[in-house]
Amino acid sequence: MTLFDFIQRLLGRQKPSGTRAKERLQLVLAHDRSDLNPELLDQMRREILEVVQRYVEIDLEEGDVSLETEDRVTALVANLPIKRARPLPALVNAAAAAAPPRKSPADASAPSSDSESSPGQGEEASPSG
């Protein structure tokens, strides 16, 4: 560690390089293990957001679709805070016949949240190799 690095660290401006190494490795390994390059992941992220947005209004600023990896299991994790459900034509028709409250399709993949009462975070994980 050079004196400059040391001062930077004292001032909290720079993380120790070992910490950076771990962060960078975790990211690159998630991609290596899934065989998804960043470009493909980005495309998938856009398409997922597109589909989800058909059903619910999501907070694009906060939203995040990424690969995470733990114990050699890589998961695709979508963390998409829902602002509110979008009434869909199909659902509105169905709801006219059935009794409220109705559930938006997004709920199916968000086990612990109710999109109408509390804008929760849908989190879905699919293990892959």
Partner: peptide, 19 residues
């Protein structure tokens, strides 16, 4: 020494990552 000053991946870092 480098590990102690966190200028190197730690033993846990490596075992965590490689499991």
């Amino acid at each position: 020494r480098m590990m102690a000053s966190q200028e190197m991946l730690s033993v846990e870092d490596v075992t965590d990552i490689l499991a």
